Amino acid sequence: MSDLEGISRYINDRISSVQRILYFSLAEVPHNKMKQLEQELDALERLLLEFEKSLVQQKDQLSQLKALEDLYQNNLENLQHLKDNVPAHMPHKCPQKENEPITTQNQAPDVEITQQETVKIKIKNHSKEIPFITLAEFECIPQYMKGRVTYEQINTAVQNINTAVVAKYKIVHQPVKTLNNHARKLHQRFKEQETKDTKGQYFVVEDDFREFTQMKLGKQLQGILNMLRHCQRLRELRGGGYTRYVLS
C-alpha cells in the first residue's frame, strides 16, 4: 500500500476476516478452519509490527523535516535582517582613471596641455583614503562624543573627506605645467601648507572641504572629526594658522 488510507483499509479487511472466523468458531469448527484463523492472526500481527516500524520511521523523518524547516526559517530571518540593515557605506577602493580631468566645486576640468605637448601625460592615483567606520567601532564611541550624530552621518563625512583627499592629491601629483590657473593656485596653496611634520603624509584642511565637497563646516563637523580621531582615522597637526587633518 502506498498511503495510510490504503494501509488502514487493508488492516480493516484483515480484522473483518478474523471476526468472521471467530463468529463461526462459536459452532464446532473444523480443524482446517482453526488453522486458517491462526494464519490470519499471524498475518495481522506481522502487518501491525510493520506498520509500527513504518510509523517510527515517519516520525523520525517528520522530526528531521521540522528541524530543516526551523533552520530555513532562521536563515530567512537572518537574510531579511541583513537586507534591511545593509550599511549605506561599504569599504571600497575607487582608483582614479589615468588622464581623468580634475573638477573642483566651482571650476571646470583644469588640465591644460600646451600646443607643443605631443605625448599624453599619465597621472596615477597616489592618494590615500580612510576606511569607513564599522558599526562596532561606532558603538564603542562614548555617547558624550557622539551626541546626535548617526552612523550614516559619520560615514558620509568619511566619504566626503576621501573625496577631498583624492581631488587634492591628484592636483599635487600632477606636473604644474599641465594645470590651468585655478589649479596652479591650489597647487601652490597645498605646497605652502606642508611642513616637515607632514612630509610623506596625506592631510586636508577646512579649505579643502569647501573646495571639493558640499560639507557644511561647523560644530557638528568638528564633533565628527573628533570621533574620527577617536577611531584613529585621523590625527591633528596645528601650525601656521591651519589645522591639518592627517590620515592615519
Rank of each mutant, 00 (worst) to 15 (best):
Q153W: 05
P95T: 02
L22D: 09
Q159V: 02
K128G: 00
R20I: 06
V166G: 03
K177Q: 14
E52P: 00
Y10A: 12
Q174F: 04
C231Y: 04
I130R: 02
K170Y: 07
H230R: 08
Q232V: 09
Q39S: 10
E152W: 11
E139K: 13
T178C: 13
K191G: 07
V205C: 05
E50R: 10
E112M: 06
Y72S: 12
L179Y: 07
G241W: 08
H230F: 12
D208I: 03
V29F: 06
Y10P: 02
F212G: 00
R46D: 08
L179M: 12
L71K: 15
T134F: 04
L62F: 09
G6W: 09
V176L: 11
T163F: 08
K120T: 08
E98F: 03
I130Q: 04
K59F: 11
E52T: 07
P109C: 06
K191C: 05
R235A: 01
G6F: 09
H182E: 09
N155A: 10
E117L: 08
K191Q: 08
N85S: 14
A88Q: 14
N12S: 13
I130H: 03
L237I: 14
S17Y: 13
M1Q: 05
C140N: 15
Q159C: 08
T163K: 12
H187E: 04
L26W: 05
A164Y: 02
L186R: 08
I130T: 04
A183G: 08
Y245M: 05
L37I: 01
A157T: 15
D84Y: 04
Q116Y: 15
R20D: 10
P175W: 07
F190L: 01
L79N: 06
N12A: 15
D70L: 15
F190G: 01
G223N: 14
Q201E: 10
T178R: 14
Q143Y: 02
N78W: 03
E40L: 12
R9F: 14
H230N: 09
L247Q: 12
G200M: 03
I21Y: 01
Q153M: 14
V86H: 05
P101Y: 08
K93L: 12
Q36R: 05
T150W: 13
L49S: 13
Q159H: 10
